[in-house]
Every structure is written in structure tokens, then in C-alpha cells.
Amino acid sequence: MKRYLLPVFVFFLFFTSFGQVRPVFIEPALSVGKTLKGRWSANAKLVFRQQMGLFDSDGFTAFSQSDILEIQLFANYKLLGSKQITLGYLYGIDEPFLDEPAWEHRLMQQFTFGSGNGFKWVNRFRLEQRFGEENFRNRFRYRFTFDRPISGSQLDSGEWYFVAGDEWLYTFTGKAGEDHLENRLNAGLGYLFENGQKLQFEIQYRIIRMVSSCASSAWHFLVTHNLKW
């Protein structure tokens, strides 16, 4: 257990050493998977993001504020060799409880491949077309994620696992000065239930608009419940 906690601790120490107050978000999500006929499967994911401890130049303004509500739908087709191609759609609402929240429609094309016994890893490549009320953006994402049982060489029900990953996101619009790069580094713990469901707690550190003068960062605490229907 100790050897898994050490990298998480170093990860915390490294990023908090900047000594600046960064926005903190809590992001609970529910992901439901369903095996369909043949090689097809479907997934639905509901994400609700809440920003905690809001400050402005005058100081504390609010304890929390809802930030994003997203509904994601995916159709997946399995390929031999632990590969999968996916088409997805997302409907997102920014600050959903305001009088005039902003919306977004997003189309997604995804290819994943992975493997592993015990140490399971997945490479994910995703293209996104993001249709906002006033703008359109493309985004390319690459993510590497793995999980590994805390005890034993294979993950059995009733056991905890360690999960970590890193994702690079490149937004391109075709307009000068608007393209930007983002990185999301995450680590956490998950639990596999007897019924095959997984509950996962992760800390994610995001660096937004990297390699630019307006770079910023934020902490996200992710809690995701994965279940099969």
C-alpha cells in the first residue's frame, strides 16, 4: 500500500509547492455500460461538476457553485486485440442553475487499445468537434490510463486498486492565438464490488493553456461509479 501512496504524496507536494490558490472542483460521475448484440456495446455517462470555495479580488464570495452538467452517450464496436472504436455525443450545460446557462453539443470519435493481466492499461485517442452557442472548436485528446490491484496480481471483487493516468488535449480553431494545449494528470484509488461495479476516487491536476502567458491550473476531485446494466 505504501508504495502506491508515495507517488500520490509526491504528486501532491510537487503541485502544491507553487504556493498559489487554485480553483478546486468536485466532479461526481455515473457511468453505465451495456453489452449489446455481437461486438457492440453502449455507454452513458452523467457528469456534474461543482466548483468549491469561490474567491474574487474582494475575497470569499461563495462556498460552491455548479459549474458543468454533462450527458455523454457512446456506441462502441470491439476489435480483435483489445481494441475498440467509439462514436459519441455529449450535451453539456455550463453553470446549469444560472438564468441563461450556456450549452454545448459535442461529437466524439475515439479509438482505444489496451492490454494487460493485473496491470491493465489503455491508450485512448479522441477527436472532438465542440459546437458552442457562439463558437466552434476542434480538440484532439490522447490519454494513457492504467490500473493495478493493490493486493495480488489480478483484481478480484472486494479489492482496492490503484489508478493513474495522463492526458494531453490540443484545441484548434483555425484562428490565430486561440489554439491551446492542456494537460490532465490524475491518480487515485478504486474499489471493485462483488457485482462487478467499480467506484473510483481520483485527484486530477489540470494545466490549462500551457506554453502561453495566460496558463492556469486547477484541482479536480473525481468520484466515478462505473456499472454494467
Binding site: K120, W121, L155
Partner: peptide, 9 residues
């Protein structure tokens, strides 16, 4: 196999 949705989505 255990579900790997947590790694994919």
C-alpha cells in the same frame, strides 16, 4: 474480465 470502462471513458 472486469469492466474497463473506468479506463476508457
Amino acid at each position: 474480465k472486469n469492466i474497463t470502462d473506468n479506463l476508457i471513458f
